[in-house]
Amino acid sequence: MKLLIRILTITAILSLFAGVGLGFAAVEEGTLVAQWGLNEDDDFKEAWDAKGDPMTAEGDIVQQVSDSPESWNRFWFNFNDGFYFHIFKPLAQGYSYIIPERPRGWVENFFTNLMYPVRFVNCLLQGKFESAGLETSKFIANTFIGLGGLGDVTEGRKVLREIPTDSEDFGQTLGAWGADNGTYLVWPFIGPSTARDSVGLVGDYFLTPATYINPWYASMAVKSYEKLNYISLRIGEYETLKEGALDPYVALKSAYLRMRAKKVSK
């Protein structure tokens, strides 16, 4: 979900490149139609999918994933939407009014660094030994030089050789092993997921250090704070996606499934 929102922003910014396009005032109606070449061919085929692979017969990822519990999903989608706008967003706005952006960035680095076990184990499970090694060196550097992970001292450093690190999680591992998404599922508070990614979330839960804080409500508080901090840095991103869509439920589902498919393929 975290990355999803970040990527949505990116897409939003990119769409801006597209969105600012096309002043229709400047276009004569004739040219527009000529440009489509409507009648000469009605070809809608794509040569490649979003990953850059040649199109397969199975079609688009979103068409492959069933949404059988749609009314359940829509119910929780609306619940999460309301929760975000009425509770989380005002809280995050208040929080970011008090705490400036930079310290909030440090908090985020801290939590990202803390999630190292999840990334490490899932790199290993997918046989990505070099990535696992790089995650480890990042973790050590950020923990000991970056004040316990508050600073990200490795970001933007020159590398001798590119080793991809892509915040692996157990859902991606299952995908890499060949598991299908299963049904699309929306969970309260967690948001969009699939049957496969839900199993992944359970696996990652046990690798998340904050899970082991006692008592349970302290653990919950830490995780909620992490989420609050995260949202405070990204207010407006979900709003943009929602505004631009005819049916925000469909747009969020589409974005989630596409983003996950790309991550699994990496």
Binding site: V250, A251, K262
Partner: peptide
């Protein structure tokens, strides 16, 4: 002519395709 922008697997076209299709 550019007609689609894809950021980390998220395609502008893809998302609107799903949105329009369902509408």
């Amino acid at each position: 002519w550019v007609y689609d922008i894809i950021g980390e697997g998220l395609t502008l076209l893809g998302i609107y395709k799903d949105d329009f299709r369902s509408a």
